[in-house]
């Protein structure tokens, strides 16, 4: 059963375990490929992860003059092929979320590959495995649909962001605010 990365940003507690976990995946050379931001550091402790959304029509890959960014059959947008990447950094500018990172020493781009050594066999990526708050989850489409029903508001005031932020993405995102639709038990 196909599973996807699903983000529920409201849950994030800023522990940055996702960053630690990303350093642990095969082929990651102990460098993490994701980000966690303090939303308003002088005010409160709100944080949010920023992850590659694995765009269906990825701007990073389109912008690459050397076709170094391959798309895996699962839809995962892979990190640049070492032998093809020319270090032009077009992708870092093209990505609407600023995801690709650049290694100036090796003159090489690197980015989230959805832990392809795991996710190709349906094993959850490292970040989604460890995330203590369930901000990052690895779910089937049915489970995601249930989430969508659970959190979509019918009061016309506010709807969470699923299915897409900008273009179509393989990763599904729920912005903060999911609890606004919850009916309290008492």
């Amino acid at each position: 059963m196909k599973k996807r990365l699903y983000l529920e940003l409201e849950n994030c507690i800023g522990c940055r375990s996702c960053l630690a976990a990303c350093t642990q995946c095969g082929g990651h050379e102990e460098r993490n490929r994701n980000y966690v931001y303090d939303v308003n550091p002088l005010v409160n402790r709100q944080t949010m992860p920023l992850m590659c959304l694995h765009c269906v029509n990825p701007a990073c890959a389109r912008s690459c003059p050397a076709q170094a960014i391959q798309i895996h059959e699962t839809g995962a947008v892979l990190s640049a092929l070492v032998e093809k990447c020319i270090g032009c950094q077009n992708c870092t500018i093209a990505c609407p979320y600023g995801i690709p990172k650049f290694d100036t020493e090796q003159n090489l781009m690197y980015k989230c590959d959805l832990c392809i050594d795991r996710s190709k066999d349906g094993i959850p990526p490292m970040c989604a495995s460890v995330c203590p708050s369930n901000t990052l989850q690895w779910l089937t489409d049915e489970e995601i649909e249930a989430k969508q029903k659970q959190f979509n508001l019918d009061n016309g005031k506010w709807v969470t962001s699923m299915p897409y932020l900008e273009g179509e993405t393989n990763v599904r995102v729920n912005l903060p605010g999911i609890l606004q639709g919850v009916t309290k038990l008492f």
């Binding site: 960053l19 976990a21 495995s129 460890v130």
Partner: peptide, 10 residues
Amino acid sequence: LGKMCPKGVT
């Protein structure tokens, strides 16, 4: 269930 904080991961 597999979850760990950054101390556990490292």
